[in-house]
Each structure stands twice: as C-alpha cells, then as structure tokens.
Design a protein around this nucleic acid. Structure first.
Length: 958
RNA sequence: GGGCACGUAGCUCAGCGGGAGAGCACUACCUUGACAUGGUAGGGGUCACAGGUUCGAUCCCUGUCGUGCCCA
C-alpha cells in the first residue's frame, strides 16, 4: 500500500538499510561471476571533510553510472574510501589542540601527536562516508579503504623504493615553494598566484670604484625590484646583452648598499630592457628566475631568510662571507626581523642614504599557499623529487593514442599542455601526518632507501663496513643488537605529499602490490569521474603511476564534470557565505530531488549554477511519480505473469509501449554517452508529459469502465509502463523508485539489481566492437550475449498507434485551447461535430468518445457533412472539427481568429515557395530537405483552403 | 602575455547548418474520483554586436565588446 504522501526522509533511511542488508552493492556477487566487471574508483574525499556540493555532483554521476551498469547485469565495483589529506588534517587537529588550550604538536612530540590524529580520524572519519550513503551512493562499502591503511601504505613504500631504485625519485637541493606558516615545502600546484597591488622600487646600486652620488647617474646602476628586502641576498645584477645602455658595465661590479658585498654585473637574456630600468638584481636563493640566472653565471646563492620568513643574518656564514668591517652591526640590527617589516625598514634605510631613485605602484602576481594563504617564499632546501618528466611521457602518449580519453574532449588539451611542461614534483613535506619517507641516513648523511628499517640497516652496515668506517665485527654486532646501532642511522623525518598515495588509488585499493584477484579482475577501471580542478593534482599522476607500475592505463575514460556554483555563478566558498549545503537540500527536498537536479544540470563543459527552485521542481516531479503510482494501485493495476507488452491489442496500450521503448533508447544512449542532462530530460518528459498527462488520462475511461479484456490489458500495461519508469529512473532517483518498486508488487529482487529495460536479442557487430574497445581484451572470454543484451526497439514500434493517439491528443488540445480563448467556463459542456470525417476518423472516433468528452469537456460527439452555423471550426490533422457555439461566440472574434490562422498558413506557404523558387536551393540542398519543403507547402495550402471554407461558412451563417 | 569556455525568454539553462526549447517565475481560469508539491490555457526571445562562408547561419569562420576559469 502506497502512503498518501511522499515523505523522502522516511523512504531514504529505510531503503539505505534494505540495500545494506541485502549486500546489493557488493562487487563479485556469485551470480555475476561471469559478468563483465564495471569499475569506478571514487575520488577519495578528505577524511576530515564533510559533503559539499562538489561531492554531491561527483558522486551522483558516479552512482548513476554504477546503478545503470549494475542493472545492465555487470559486476560493478564502485570502490570507496577516504584520503588522509596530510596538511588539511594536520591543520584541523592542531587547531583543535589550540582551541582546547592543550599542548601543541611540538610539545606533544611526533608519536603522541600522531596518536591524536588517528583518534580524530576514528571519531570523525565516518562523517563523510555516512553523508555519501545519505546521497544514495551505491559503493561496495565492505571494501572501504583509507590512504594510510596498512595495505595502501605498503604500496606507497614499494612505489617509493622502486622509483628511487630506477632513478625516478631523487633528493635535490633547489628552490622550493616554502610555506612560512606551515613550515613545509609544497608543490607548484599547491601555490596560488594572486594579483596583488604592490610597488616597484627603483634602487641605485653604486658602481665599484666610483664615488656614489645620487646626483651622478654615472656613479650607480638602477635596478627595479618588487622585493627590496631580498637585496641582502643579491649576488648579481643582470642586464640584457643587447642593451646598449649597459654594455660598458658588464663584467664590472657594484657594491651592495647597506651590505657592502661586491656583486658582479652580468649579461643575461632574462633581463628585459623594456621593463623597469632594464637592469635587475639577482637573488639566486630567493627567486626562481634568479636561481636559473645565477646558475648560468656561477653566482653564489645566499639565503637570508629562515623557515619562518624572518631575516637570518647573524651566524649566517654565506651572508657574512667577504663582507667589510661594520657589516656585523647591520646584521645584528636586522636579524630575525620579519620579511615584511624588513622590507619597510630596509627601504627607509636605503632612502636615508639616497639609494632609492623612485617608487612606483605596481600590480603583480604573488604566490600564496592554497592552505595557509600566506605568501610563499622560494626557499633553498633539500627535498625529494619525482622525475615527473619521464613518467609523463607514457601518460601523455596514452591519451594521444586514445587508450584513455577525456569527456568532454577539450580537456585533453589542458592535460597535454601541463604534461609537456611538467616540472619535477616535490613530494616531501615537513609534516608529521602522512606516509613517512622510507629513507635512512648514515652518520655521513648518505641515504639508504629501503622498504623496512631492517633492510636499510643491513644496506648501511654493509656499506660502512666496505668503506671501513666500521669494522666487520662492529657491523655484525650492530646488526644483531638494536641498542648498539642506536643513533647510527636515522630515518628521514619528512612525509610524502598526500597526492603521492592518491596517485596509486586505482590499484592500491585493489590490494596491489599483492597479486589479488581483485587487481586481476577490476584493473584497469572503466571510468574516472572527477572535476577539472584536480586534473593535474590527481588524474595526471594516476596516469603516470598506473602506467609505470601496472603497465596499463588506470581508466579508459575520464569524465570531467563541472564546478557547482551558486545561483549567480560565483564559486561557493565559506568566506563568501554562499555555500549551499547539500545535506540541507536533502533534508528539505530529499536526496532523489537533489540528485535529479544535479544530473539534469550536468551538461558537458558547463558549470552548474544551482538554484534551489530547480531542486524544488524536481521534488515535485518525485511527488508526481508517487501519485501516478498511487493511481495505478487504486485501479488494481498489476503485471500478470507472462504478460507480453508487444502483444497488446489496445491502441492506447500499444502506444505507451512504443513511447516507452523510445524513452528507453533515449535514456540508455544518453547515459552511455555521459549526457546525464539529456537522460534526465528524457525520463522526466516521459513520466510527466507522456505517462501522466496523456496515458493515464486516456486510460481512465477504460479503467473506470466495465470489466473485460480491454480493462485487463490496460491494467497490465499501466503497471508495466510504471515498472519501466521505475527502472529507467532508478539510477537518478534510487530511493523513491526502490520504495515504489517494493510496495507496488511482489518482487523477486531489488530494483537496484533488476534488469534494465532491454530485450535480449543479441548485440550488433558495431556494439560488440564498442564493447571490446571499452572494456579491453581480457573480457573477450565472456559471452557478450550474456552480459550485454541489446534491445530490439522494433518490437514495440507502432507508427499506427502513434498516429491515432497523436490525433486524439491534437484534437483535445485544440478544443481546450479554443475554449480557453473563447472564455468558455469549464463547467459548460459543448458538442463536437466531426465534419466530413474520413473513413479513418470514422473508424477511430468511436474508440475515443469517452476520453475526448471527458478531457475536452464535451457533451456529445457526432459526425456531419458541414459545420453547423455559428460554430467554431478547428482544423485537426487536415479535417474540420466544429464546436457549435451559436450565441456563445462572437462572430467577429471567431472570424478574426480564423483570419489569423489563414495568415499563418500564408506565411508558411510564402516561406516554402520562396525557397522552392530559388534554383540554387533546389540544386544544392539535400533531396529530403527539398522534399520536406514541398510537403510543407502542400500541407499549408490544404490548411489554407480549409480555413477559407470555414470562413466562408461563418459569413454565410451570420 | 598564453590557453580554454561562455554571452539564447524575467531567472537558471538545453539545443543547433534547414520553421526558437525546458524548468522556475509570470497571467487567467479550474478544489474534475492519483496529484493544488496539482490541472488547463497563455504571454514573453533581432539566439551579445559586426563582417564572412553557404541556396540557407542562433549554429561554421574572423573580428569587436562583455563574463568566467586555468597557466605564466
């Protein structure tokens, strides 16, 4: 029994339990052992996170695909899990400690702190998972993974060790993006370039051997800079080799103001003669470009900042080397001054001595940390790098060859561009929460990379014995006794970038490096569904790692979906306060309504501007479906055993089967092509505008009439079409459809596992080829007949039924329209005369009298040779239908109405004739287009003739 | 500076080489036996602008203006 009112919350909580208890989403179900697998790995949400609109969209689309393929009989694995999210999680826990006024992480120590993070993960890691369940995500929850699980950690270590062994991971001292707040290096991708209004300072650098005077341009060279405080680390001044102004100065030196360091003037292309003064200061230790210039000219690298971004001058040997007397005093004065304070004070000092020529306002881009928001400092440190350039080559080739393709295609260009200009990937982070790097250092700093400490120790001892640093005897003792080697080798403190472990996600979650059956069966995965914002962070790196370690692409299709924005198109952000919480929408309208909205708006290549009014609209859609099912129930509609819709006798029933098959095709093909909006649109129209608006209405007289074969068949068909709807709609609205499936009939299985509306009759060769291409060669072992039944649409196609119902619909619609136009009250029933009806109409009409009377509010239907006097005359599919309304209608108004119709027909005739009169059109246009024009002209001419006759009669009568 | 999108009804968006569509909003009417979270009918658009290709352009090309995003 269907409840009177649709209450999403009740249904959703109940259905979640039903699915969970029945293990409906479990991969590798025994009954699907021979089915083709379909695999999607979830983009793992941050373990600390909570569901936002992006997740809702992302997971709705994945769920549509998974439910669709599951209903098509495939063995679906939707692999769920969460990401440890290094920096983000560490920040959350640290903030929590601060708020509770508990000891900070440094006070706690690494071990205690990590315990604390694990505790936090245990407490709150389920939040996001439960929220995904509320959305209806049909993941195999029994296989949930976490990037810091034992198994996944094992994969991480193995990958690190192997890449290191192959020279694809290495340690290097170079400039990194340093976050002075989080005190860690970050990768290029975690840096956000933001436009900032700053200044350009023009500084005078005195030329060596000349007496500096601000009034004597020959005594100095002017350099322009946006970061005057870094001048303390200057080790060069660069001018363009072709810049005539400075040619004489190349090779000479300047004396760095305030510092006194002797600095060479070099010629380098990097200096742009058009910009600033044409001369630039070179600070190799604090600027990426300067680093390169410095390398080319052998300039020293002097770091003048510490990890926190304060000047670091005292005891800084690099800084103090070769400085004149008195430099120490300056160093003492500025030591540990924050970089921004230092900027101000150094400029003041320079100004005091006449070293500042001028200051211009200047807008430029400044790097900021995406997590901390602080200004990123290029900083010279030792870090671990992945040779991304080498790994990128096969990853690029795989997309070029089409082994993996992006949907929509235009993202491939973005991917190529980045891959072709890829920089070494800095993977070490000075954090605690994450995978600790499996590298150990000997007493002389030599690195030993190994999967375990024992292995590293044995390598190290072997090495140092060989180097005669220790004796063989000492080596043996140290190997046997932990205490004896205490402090001999120490592990690298750093952890890996979070994205390092997520790069392995498509195979680490399946059990790799162990040779599990899951790796065998579910890799490579079929499709990755994600947002464009992580193409570089994640997609590209999965491609690299997947190809390197598995020798196969991790997925054959990458579906890139849009960003969800607010109604006005602004990015949702907490600071803007325009965040729409998907959970609130679920509470208010139901998960099904939210899901349907997102699917309906997920047009390829376009962002989603979400308006709650849309969600409300689709909630109404769910209600509509609910009530339609109630109607079917009230009328005792059920599908009898052995019912064959193709054998239906009633025109109306044949028609709905025809329409239903058409919709099945539309929905299926749209999902296959990732056109989620088209699929949603097709099922929406079918449910509301076909099934509810017409089929149910047209069926009412039969259902309410006397029992008999027609009524029995109609009852069966109402229920059959309802079931088709429930199936087609299930991927989009799983909760309400599963509920209605359950309550409307006794079912052998869950809707989630029911057969998608397809009639098995064998795939076409074309479809077989597509299947083989999409799923890879391994599956050719499986009978395609078994796994991919293809619907033969011809079974239900019935143009005759379509024409007949089309006529009924047209007739009713036109009568309604003219009644509204004439302001005839709904309570007033009118008669209808079918004038000069054809044999076909005479044959058809009796079948529809009840329906037409009811829906068009008629008192009576009759046939006649001519329209009664003073009747409104409608032209329905070439024949006149007259409503005798003498005395009710205004003859002048009716005549005007007909004139308007004639004018329309005239316009159509004119348009068609002008085209047909154009020789070039007839010569060049496709034959069917020309033919179509001819038909249009004929139809319009016939319509006009009938309308003129109608007008004539009207005149005669009045 | 380089790249990618996008400007279609009041709003949010589909569509696309052969007569402009949806949802919401709006107007009028209707509590008809599934549904007022509903029904019926209706109003509303030089498809940003200017050129070009074509028998034919909202659609393809070029440019302009405007908006957004990514990369330097």
């Amino acid at each position: 029994m269907i409840e009177k009112n649709y209450q999403p919350a009740d249904i959703e909580s109940r259905m979640s339990v039903v699915w969970e208890d029945s293990l409906a989403f479990k991969a590798g179900r025994p009954d699907r052992r021979d089915a083709v697998p379909f695999t999607i790995v979830i983009p793992p949400p941050n373990v600390t996170g909570s569901l936002h609109m992006g997740h809702a969209l992302n997971n709705t689309l994945q769920d549509i695909l998974c439910r669709f393929e599951r209903m098509r009989g495939r063995d679906v694995l939707w692999q769920p899990g969460t990401d440890h999210a290094g920096i983000a999680t560490q920040m959350v826990v640290e903030r929590q400690l601060m708020e509770r006024q508990q000891p900070g992480r440094r006070e706690m120590g690494r071990e205690k702190f990590l315990e604390r993070v694990w505790q936090w993960k245990a407490e709150s890691g389920d939040t996001i998972i439960n929220q995904l369940k509320r959305l209806g995500a049909s993941c195999d929850w029994s296989r949930e993974r976490f990037t810091m699980d034992e198994g996944l950690s094992k994969a991480v270590v193995k990958v690190f060790v192997e890449l290191h062994r192959d020279g694809l991971i290495y340690k290097d001292k170079r400039l990194v993006n340093w976050d002075t707040k989080l005190l860690t290096a970050i990768s290029d991708l975690e840096v956000q370039q933001t436009e900032v209004k700053g200044h350009l300072w023009y500084l005078r650098y005195p030329i060596e051997g000349k007496t500096f005077s601000p009034d004597d341009p020959a005594s100095f060279i002017v350099v322009a800079t946006t970061r005057p405080e870094t001048m303390l680390g200057d080790t060069g001044v660069a001018v363009h080799p072709d810049d005539e102004r400075y040619q004489k100065l190349v090779g000479k030196h300047i004396i760095l103001p305030l510092v006194g360091r002797k600095v060479q003037i070099v010629a380098d292309d990097y200096s742009d003669p058009e910009k600033g003064s044409g001369a630039v200061k070179v600070t190799p230790a604090h600027d990426f470009n300067d680093f390169e210039v410095g390398k080319r000219h052998g300039l020293r690298q002097i770091s003048v900042l510490d990890k926190e971004g304060c000047l670091d001058l005292l005891d800084n040997e690099d800084y103090l080397r070769d400085l004149p007397e008195g430099a120490a005093q300056f160093a003492e004065e500025f030591h540990k001054v924050d970089r921004f304070a230092a900027r101000k004070r150094i400029v003041e000092r320079l100004e005091a001595f006449g070293f500042v020529e001028r200051i211009e306002p200047h807008t430029h881009t400044v790097p900021h940390g995406d997590r901390s928001g602080t200004v990123i400092e290029p900083y010279l440190t030792d870090q671990w790098y992945v040779d991304a350039k080498t790994l990128a080559k096969p990853a690029t080739a795989a997309v070029r060859s089409g082994e993996t393709s992006f949907v929509p295609k235009n993202w491939e260009k973005t991917y190529f561009e980045w891959m072709e200009n890829i920089q070494p990937w800095c993977i070490s982070r000075q954090l605690w929460w994450g995978h600790q790097i499996p590298a150990w250092y000997g007493p002389d700093g030599k690195v030993f990379v190994a999967e375990t400490e024992e292995e590293a120790v044995s390598h190290a001892l072997g090495y140092y014995v060989e180097q005669e640093v220790i004796t063989a005897e000492q080596g043996r003792e140290m190997a046997l006794d932990r205490n004896k080697r205490e402090g001999f080798i120490t592990r690298d403190e750093d952890v890996l970038d979070t994205w390092f472990s997520s790069a392995l996600w498509p195979f680490s979650t399946l059990g790799w490096p162990d040779a599990t059956p899951e790796v065998q069966r579910y890799y490579p995965t079929n499709v990755l569904v994600t947002g464009f914002d992580i193409i570089f962070f994640w997609v590209a790196r999965m491609m690299m790692m997947g190809l390197h370690f598995m020798k196969e692409v991790p997925f054959s299709t990458i579906y890139i979906h849009a960003l969800v924005r607010d109604e006005k198109g602004a990015k949702m952000s907490k600071s803007k306060g325009n965040v729409i919480d998907p959970l609130h929408l679920i509470d208010e309208y139901g998960a099904d309504a939210l899901r349907f909205t997102l699917a309906a708006m997920a047009a390829q290549g376009r962002d989603i501007k979400l308006a709650t009014s849309r969600v409300e609209g689709y909630r109404n859609f769910a209600t509509k479906l609910w009530n339609a099912c109630r109607f079917a129930e009230m009328n005792h509609c059920a599908v009898p055993d052995g019912f064959e819709p193709a054998k239906a006798k009633q025109t109306l029933n044949r028609w709905i089967a025809h329409e239903s098959a058409h919709t099945t095709r539309e929905v299926t093909e749209a999902i296959e092509a990732y056109r989620f909006n088209d699929a949603a649109g097709a099922i929406y129209r079918f449910v509301w505008n076909v099934y509810c608006d017409w089929y149910v209405e047209l069926a009412k007289p039969v259902l309410l009439g006397p029992d008999g074969p027609a009524k029995a068949e109609t009852r069966a068909m109402v229920a059959w079409a309802r079931d088709e709807i429930l199936k087609l709609l299930h991927p989009f609205m799983p909760f309400i459809t599963e509920e209605l499936w359950e309550v409307t009939a006794k079912r052998e299985e869950l809707l989630a596992l029911a057969q998608w509306p397809l009639k098995p009759s064998g795939p076409t060769p074309e479809q077989l080829a597509m299947l083989a291409a999409a799923t890879g060669p391994t599956e050719s072992l499986v009978s395609p007949m078994l796994v991919m039944p293809i619907f033969d649409h011809a079974d239900f196609t019935d143009p005759k039924a379509e024409a007949e119902i089309g006529w009924v619909i047209d007739l009713i619609t036109q009568i309604r329209s003219v009644r509204a136009e004439m302001n005839i009250a709904p309570a007033t029933l009118t008669a209808l005369v079918l004038v000069g009806a054809s044999a076909e109409t005479k044959e058809r009409a009796p079948r529809w009298i009840d329906v037409i009377k009811r829906m068009a509010r008629l008192s009576d239907i009759s046939f006649g040779d001519r329209a009664p006097d003073g009747a409104v005359q409608l032209l329905v599919r070439g024949e006149v239908a007259a409503l005798p309304l003498k005395g009710v209608i205004d003859v002048a108004a009716e005549s005007a109405r007909l004139d308007k119709e004639v004018a329309k027909a005239d316009a159509d005739i004119k348009r068609a004739e002008s085209k047909l009169a154009n020789e070039k059109f007839v010569a060049n246009a496709a034959e069917e287009v020309v033919e179509e024009e001819r038909e249009k002209r004929e139809a319009a001419l016939a319509r006009k003739a009938k309308l003129l006759e109608a007008l004539e009669r009207l005149k005669q009568a009045s």
